[in-house]
Amino acid sequence: MIHVQDLQFSYTSHPFIADINFTVPAGEIFGFLGPSGAGKTTIQKILTGLLTNFNGNVEVGGIDLKRFNRDLYERIGVDFEFPSLYEKLTGRENLKFFASLYKHHVAIDPLLESVGLINDADKKVSAYSKGMKSRLDFIKALVHDPDILFLDEPTSGLDPSNARVMKNIILQLKAEGKTIVLTTHNMYDATELCDRVAFIVDGKLVALNTPHNLIISHGASTVRYSYISDGEEKTSTTALDKTATDPLLLQLIKENRLSTIHSSEPTLNDIFTLLTGRELQ
């Protein structure tokens, strides 16, 4: 559905995006992870046709982004990081206007209902909270039932309950066969939602795999335990696959002296830090 080969781009004389290669098959949620300024949003701008002076080959939905017409926009939906709404219009008026730009569009009310905005649909957007604007902006990208979605930090600024609603909708869209490109620096969203993630740092693609494979291949789960010795609490750590050969742990289990025992897996953020030496958040 999306094919990127040898992508290079620069705002200045210095290369900013370099040697980016990846393919996103239909029905996949593909995540771009990276710190602010890494180039995620620039790549999204290229994939949505906003930046066209790039080098390399980029195809979205079989359309070459060096030579495309407006039909591309009938097929893609974009949710930018910051809301793009008419503040003086109501939520419903906004959706109706944006829907009217497309050849085909879906009913507005079910969309409003899906994000809990149906009762506020006739309020002016200027009276909406930040979270309400984010939700309205998100469904604005869905008014024309696009095949491919580009979502930039879709849960940013949302409370946990509304973030959950949003993530459920994203998963539902994937189940319907939509292809979704998610740009985020939220490792939890990426781990939960994405089939594959790409780490972007300084305009370069550092790693690309499923979140599970990245965690398994680069990090080991550990077991941390504590016990009382000489009247003091002491702690020790061992790899999960080495527990059978840790004599102290085996002895403590045998003598029933363990105070606490926990297993822990590295997070995507840990793997990101391991691979890039940078923090995601």
Partner: peptide
């Protein structure tokens, strides 16, 4: 200011429209 111009550019209206 409301980021709408950029959004309209990625609708069938496009920049030229």
């Amino acid at each position: 200011d409301e980021n709408i111009a950029q959004y309209l550019a990625i609708t069938p209206l496009g920049r030229k429209g």
